[in-house]
Simulated scan of single mutants.
Amino acid sequence: MARMVFCRKFQQEMEGLDVPPMPGAKGQELFDSVSKQAWQEWLNHQTMLINEKHLNMMDLTARAYLNEQRDKFFAGDAIDSVEGYVPPSE
């Protein structure tokens, strides 16, 4: 049976992550309050941010930027869009 959490992104009970997505207190917080679906959506958006903004993940400011965007994403706040991204047509 899947582990259920109250997802703070979607504000409903949903299937939770299988393991914390990162070590430490932040990873545990995400594990306890973010659904698999919300986490996957964040990973997709994060990948687009890294690619379109040419972020260097060795740069601490780029990592801090992504952490800030992740927190805003899960809180439902406005996040930076990806300039130039055009979703594929169906």
Results as ranks from 00 to 15, higher is better:
Met1Asp: 14
Met1Ala: 15
Phe6Gln: 06
Phe6Asp: 01
Cys7Tyr: 01
Cys7Glu: 00
Cys7Gly: 09
Cys7Gln: 01
Lys9Cys: 09
Lys9Gly: 06
Phe10Trp: 12
Gln11Lys: 13
Gly16Lys: 00
Leu17Asp: 02
Leu17His: 05
Leu17Glu: 04
Asp18Pro: 07
Val19Gly: 03
Pro21Gly: 05
Pro21Asn: 05
Pro23Ala: 13
Pro23Met: 15
Pro23Ile: 13
Pro23Thr: 13
Lys26Gln: 07
Gly27Lys: 00
Glu29Met: 03
Glu29Cys: 07
Asp32Ile: 04
Ser33Thr: 10
Val34Ala: 01
Lys36His: 07
Lys36Tyr: 02
Ala38Leu: 04
Trp39Met: 15
Trp39Ala: 00
Trp39Ser: 04
Gln40Ser: 12
Gln40Cys: 08
Glu41Asn: 10
Glu41Arg: 08
Leu43Cys: 14
Thr47Trp: 08
Thr47Ser: 14
Leu49Val: 11
Leu49Pro: 04
Leu49Thr: 14
Ile50Asn: 07
Lys53Val: 06
Leu55Phe: 12
Leu55Arg: 06
Asn56Ile: 05
Met57Ser: 06
Met58His: 13
Met58Ser: 13
Leu60Gly: 05
Leu60His: 11
Arg63Ser: 10
Arg63Gln: 14
Ala64Lys: 15
Tyr65Phe: 15
Leu66Lys: 02
Asn67Gln: 11
Asn67Cys: 04
Glu68Gly: 15
Glu68Val: 09
Asp71Glu: 15
Asp71Met: 05
Lys72Gln: 13
Lys72Asn: 12
Phe74Met: 06
Phe74Ser: 01
Phe74Asp: 01
Ala75Thr: 08
Ala75His: 07
Gly76Trp: 07
Asp77Val: 06
Ala78Phe: 08
Asp80Phe: 04
Ser81Ile: 11
Ser81Leu: 13
Ser81Tyr: 08
Val82Ser: 05
Glu83Ile: 08
Glu83Asn: 13
Pro87Leu: 10
Glu90Phe: 09
